[in-house]
């Protein structure tokens, strides 16, 4: 089960854990926008990425996420990095040539372009990890529902959608447990899920998926019956067990992220160049 623990909610009680889920979701979007802004030149881009990385690293430290878990997630990115580099070198480019292989020119632009995408991806994954490992899935759903509230005016079924999402999230661990259970049961019958020929593997997967689907359908039917038996009415007004409360630290965090994004936008819009500024000082 250890390999699925990546990005899973970890019940610590840090400053970030205690923040309002609405703020955290908003902060995620704001910082992601910040990650995608381009600056006046190459060194400036890297400086800002570095600053954002330091910020995210601090957030990870506060919320007690181990850097090891991040690296584990990044392992799968290697294929993508190579792929991106190949694509970027094939696409016609201009500017300074970094080096040539025979008559094949590889431009600095291509390398930087790839690096930007990779860095952005890493930063985004790290950010999302901070969000998902410090926020209960249910709280996230409440936050999404809260943001969708204005659409109620046009009869958009916000509550139903939020409920569907929260049920789906609620059943992920259950279905995972079920998967492990069935895998073990079939392994006891001699199924080898790891090695074996392709035809054996297909059979192994069929022996897993069919029981899994059957139990999932059964569960959903039981759940629907249980909800109806308790008089569930999607359009009914209801109160919540856990009420989201906006506190002072949330306001501070909100001002911080908005300020940060404005700062980044200003730097980009005014074409500020730290390297040149420092160069002028001396």
């Amino acid at each position: 089960m250890a390999n699925i623990a990546l990005g899973r909610y970890v019940p610590y009680n840090s400053f970030i854990h205690r923040l309002d889920p609405r703020l955290k979701l908003f902060g995620l979007i704001v910082l992601m926008v910040g990650i995608f802004i381009k600056f006046v030149n190459v060194p400036m881009n890297f400086i800002v990425y570095g600053l954002i990385f330091i910020l995210i690293a601090m957030m990870m430290m506060v919320s007690r996420i181990k850097f090891k878990t991040l690296f584990k997630q990044l392992k799968a990115l290697w294929i993508m990095i190579t792929f991106l580099l190949i694509i970027n070198t094939i696409v016609p480019n201009s500017g300074a040539i970094a080096f040539s292989i025979g008559s094949w020119n590889i431009y600095w632009n291509a390398i930087f372009q790839t690096l930007y995408i990779v860095i952005r991806l890493v930063l985004m994954i790290a950010l999302t990890m901070v969000l998902t490992s410090t926020t209960r899935p249910l709280d996230l759903t409440y936050a999404i529902e809260w943001y969708l509230l204005p659409f109620k005016v046009i009869r958009f079924p916000t509550h139903e959608i939020a409920m569907t999402i929260s049920i789906a999230l609620r059943f992920i661990p259950t279905l995972l447990d079920e998967t492990y259970r069935i895998m073990k049961a079939q392994a006891s019958r001699g199924v080898d899920f790891v090695s074996g020929k392709l035809s054996e593997k297909v059979r192994a997967i069929v022996s897993l998926i069919v029981p899994l689907f059957i139990s999932a359908f059964q569960r959903s039917e039981e759940l629907a019956n249980a909800m109806e038996a308790r008089g569930y009415n999607p359009s009914g007004k209801r109160t919540r067990y856990r009420v989201m409360k906006w506190r002072v630290p949330d306001s501070i965090a909100l001002i911080f992220v908005v300020g940060l994004l404005s700062g980044i936008i200003v730097l980009a819009a005014l074409k500020v160049d730290f390297v040149a500024i420092i160069g002028n000082l001396f």
């Binding site: 259970r181 049961a185 079939q186 001699g190 069929v206 022996s207 029981p211 059957i214």
Partner: peptide
């Protein structure tokens, strides 16, 4: 090992496919 010891889990009826 799997052949030597046959393991019947709880509610084994869910493993049929």
């Amino acid at each position: 090992f799997r052949k030597h010891a046959g393991l019947v889990f709880q509610f084994p009826e869910y493993q049929l496919f």
